[in-house]
Amino acid sequence: MTHAGDLPVWAAIATSCLVLLGAGLTLVGALGLLRLKTFYERVHAPTLGATWGAGGILLGSILLFTVLQSRPVLHEALIAVFVTVTTPVTLMLLTRAAVYRDRSEGKDIPRP
């Protein structure tokens, strides 16, 4: 941690809170993956880590490197855009695949 020596205390505390919030939400999402009973319930769990879980860590990183002024914060912005665009798409594709498989096995999934 040599690069953070001259960081003001408020920035350190704010970054810590954001990062711990993000990591905590991600862990809760993973726990949901383990605890919930059916596939359609489990699809909801990873969105926790992908929305504010990733958001907290990225905001913390942006704050840290902006205050330190060591480098511009471009990668974080790109990752944030990418995660917000891709996560819903993958989850939607997976639910559709699961619905298709369940229907072809004769399980009762309502039709719109």
């Binding site: 990225l58 913390g60 990183s61 989850l91 997976l94």
Partner: peptide, 30 residues
């Protein structure tokens, strides 16, 4: 079932990415 495994794999990817971000924050390596 296969779809459960893939959802878990996707979550694993996201978590791994976040872990790398935290590594990057603690070492300041781009």
């Amino acid at each position: 079932r296969a779809q459960d495994r893939i959802v878990a794999l996707d979550a694993l990817y996201v978590n791994g990415m976040l872990l790398l971000l935290v590594f990057g924050m603690s070492t300041a390596v781009t």
